[in-house]
Design a protein around this nucleic acid. Sequence first.
DNA 1: GACACTTCCTATAGTGACTATAGGCATTGC
DNA 2: GCAATGCCTATAGTCACTATAGGAAGTGTC
Lengths: 152, 152
Amino acid sequence: MKIGELARRTDCRVVTIRYYEREGLLPEPARSEANYRLYGEAHVERLAFIRHCRALDMTLDEIRALLDCHDHPDRPCHEADALIDAHLDHVAARIAQLQALEGALQALRARCQGQHSAAECGILDALAHPPEDAVANASADGDHVAGVHPRL
Amino acid sequence: MKIGELARRTDCRVVTIRYYEREGLLPEPARSEANYRLYGEAHVERLAFIRHCRALDMTLDEIRALLDCHDHPDRPCHEADALIDAHLDHVAARIAQLQALEGALQALRARCQGQHSAAECGILDALAHPPEDAVANASADGDHVAGVHPRL
DNA sequence: GACACTTCCTATAGTGACTATAGGCATTGC
DNA sequence: GCAATGCCTATAGTCACTATAGGAAGTGTC
């Protein structure tokens, strides 16, 4: 099949497939006479694997490591386990962080009901002079779980 | 004060301050004879405002909008309110998403206790052939709240 | 005054995981 | 024969920074 069908079957953009190829996550496929990429079922499976990992918010580096396990079925799978564990930790940490953030935002929101001018707005005031601890715990500590504005 | 002191007082890197200036979030300060940037208390306050917003994971565009409100105290503050509301929605959505993700990862993790070879590993198997719905709800829907791997 | 060390300056490129654009060839349907 | 679509490559842009290079100015010690 050509790249468009692969894209349709894996719910992945065509450009993204080519990007994965450049990044070495997908092997270079055969080419037609017209130089079109030609894929088989193995490619569908591998791309599906990648997209599932991405849906779980793993980085391409993490996925590379998992694919490496996948490509060496004779080796033990401690690595894969450890990777998932570490990733779980990151996700849990990020959730806690965002919940703190949600609390801070709700407190902020409660300070204004929209009836004032900006000069009297409790929100703007609080942002200019926050109560010290309100925001302290909400900021990330480099734990590799992304901020509030994803791309996907 | 010079840029280093401003950075220390606001817990913000020097390069980041210059970046905010280039982005128009901070006004260009006065310069010393040696061309060093010279800041006053107004800059400290404005930068603190920006950093608090960033700690709440707002984008620079959102912050620009809030600063615009801040800079026009005579105007009503509906905009600021609406912005915080929208941001809260995004954070809440992201939390829900990550919790779904956490569940999917825990289910995944439970499939292997690390005693197998990669060929028998339940994790790798599940990633290659997931049970359809497991991952479906975990993937983002472009709601602008970032993925699992932040930078900050 | 000579030297090292730190702080400051500008400009440019890199990060991750894509997305967008330009310019062009191949295929398909009418 | 022609337009619409799909495919190709290559390059640049996204966001919020971070890193690096190369140099000038200020500070402290001998």
